[in-house]
Simulated scan of single mutants.
Amino acid sequence: MTSTRIPSSTKKYVAIDAELGRTPVASVSDLVPPKTQIKRRQPTWVNFGLRASGPILLVLLWTLSSASGALSPQQFPAPWEVLNALRDLAANGTLWANLSVSLQRAFIGIIIGVSIGFTLGTISGLFRIGDQLIDPTVQIIRTVPVLAVTPLLIIWFGIDELPKIIIIALAAAMPTYINTHLGVRHVDSKLLESGRVHELNTPQLVWTVIVPEALPQMLLGLRIAMTGSLLALVVAELSNTRLGIGFLMTSAQQYFQTDIMVGCILLYAIAGLSADAFVRFLERVFMPYKFHRGVKK
């Protein structure tokens, strides 16, 4: 029987398994499940088609309902009316002038909020003193609704960009912090002990052990943060603003332009779908093993 040479990477896992008290692997084949238990991932076009089927069905029902007269055009415009309104706004430059401002606000707020959430969540998850000092304050801030602090922020900072960015950053920071804190706190203590046995310092321990183990929970927090930030963007732009998709909706409401209002809602929906696709892209980059093959349940 031909023996299989165990590479150095496998030997590392053998050593770690021995330290953790698990049954060590004997060969490379022990790291791979049997072929009968492996299922290949769906082709990309099949996966995309299945994910797009829901939105396409909704648009189809909307079109059929409008064409048959089941939906009143005064209350809910037809898809072609919404597209015509967006095309007119794009032609005169109004759409991009407002959309670019909204995207800029969302981008800056998300970057600030996610950075704060990751940093505080990691510190409070790693250190007991950090948890005692940071977590109670964050939990208090988390329970305060964004709508409750909006008037106060406007009084403090006026109606410029700063209060809007603060609102979006708060909405992004809270779920990022909670999921990062949870992911770091639930890292297997045996893995931490193994890292300390190999004399890893704190930065090395964070990047080689803690972050990879907590990454799925962190990305979940990022996904929730993206959605929450878009909701906060709507809140921030519906009052005391001169530019943005929310301002465009408010102006359309005053003149009963339902086609523009529905078009703005669609833009928010597209932004949310794009944010979710971005997080899925990060998952494919940092956790490719989730998307290539899986073991049958």
Rank of each mutant, 00 (worst) to 15 (best):
S3M: 10
I6T: 10
S8F: 14
K12Q: 10
R22Y: 11
A26D: 06
Q37S: 13
I38G: 05
T44E: 11
R51F: 04
A52D: 04
A52W: 07
L60K: 05
S65M: 06
G69M: 03
G69I: 03
L71C: 03
P73A: 07
Q75N: 07
A78L: 06
A78N: 03
W80N: 03
E81W: 01
L83V: 05
N84I: 02
L86D: 00
R87V: 08
L89N: 06
L89F: 04
A90P: 09
G93Q: 04
A97N: 15
N98M: 07
L103I: 13
R105Y: 09
R105A: 10
G113H: 01
I116E: 00
F118T: 00
L120N: 01
L120P: 00
I129K: 07
G130Q: 08
D131P: 00
D135W: 04
Q139N: 09
P145V: 06
L147H: 08
L147C: 11
L153V: 05
I155P: 02
W156I: 11
W156F: 11
F157D: 04
D160W: 05
I168S: 01
T176A: 02
N179L: 09
T180Q: 01
H181S: 03
K190W: 02
R196P: 04
R196V: 08
W207Q: 05
E213Q: 10
R223Q: 09
I224E: 04
M226I: 12
L233H: 07
R242H: 15
T250V: 14
T258D: 09
I260T: 13
V262R: 07
C264G: 09
L267W: 08
Y268K: 07
A271Y: 02
S274K: 13
F278T: 13
V279D: 01
R280G: 10
F281H: 14
E283L: 11
H292S: 14
K297A: 11
